[in-house]
Amino acid sequence: MMNIQEFRKGLGDGVPIAAGYLSVSFSFGIMVLNGGLSIFQGALMSLTNMTSAGQFAGLQVIIAGGTLLEMALTQLIINLRYALMSLSLSQKLSEGVTFRQRLVIAFANTDEIFAAAMSRGKSLTFSYMIGLQLLPILGWTSGTMLGAAASGLMPPVLGSALNVALYGMFIAVVTPAARRSRPVLFAAALAAALSCLFYYVPALKSVSSGTAIILATVAASAAAAVLFPIKEEGGGEA
């Protein structure tokens, strides 16, 4: 049963997220075409994955010709945070949400959609969640298509500049957290150091980029978790 009022409320809350996604996925679309994939493949990836960091790493695995196991592991590690978000979200769904509806809602539980859903005062209905997810899904997919389509028309100097947009987003997520929290700074610095090690040390160069990201992430996160265990539940950092 759809509740139109709830659906509309969700749509409205999804507008700013969709606008943000449109511009970020635009730069992802450029990377897709630079990586030798087609516009359709890029759009399909965005539509079916709904994740920035995961898709970015996945694209690198594809370009490097990595194995499917490497691809699966890369996605598992990078997107593991969604499991936490889904756990929290499941506590906040209203009683009436069925098993099948949960299967649908799970599809686009992104960082931003999760944050918007959790900031809503009351328990969440299926209608609201569908409304909330709809425009961001469209924005993310169409932005990828637009970026890929535009990249062929763009002068190289502009393409070069837009290539750092996604990295800029990553920096925008990590920097404020690292500023507030020494442990986060430690985890990030260690991950950067390990990542550089894999990139520059000749003996480690045979390690593919996807595997390097996995190893650096797991090692840095585990070290930080041992040295600086968090106090309560880490929720709310999304």
Partner: peptide, 30 residues
């Protein structure tokens, strides 16, 4: 986690590990 496994994670190491993963991962990619 949204359908089958809906229990909270109690293990402190796992909680902490998952908390740091996004930051470590984004930095390793950047």
């Amino acid at each position: 986690p949204l359908t089958v496994f809906r229990k909270k994670i109690e293990n402190r190491f796992v909680q902490s590990f998952l908390y740091y993963v996004p930051y470590a991962c984004l930095t390793a990619m950047t």
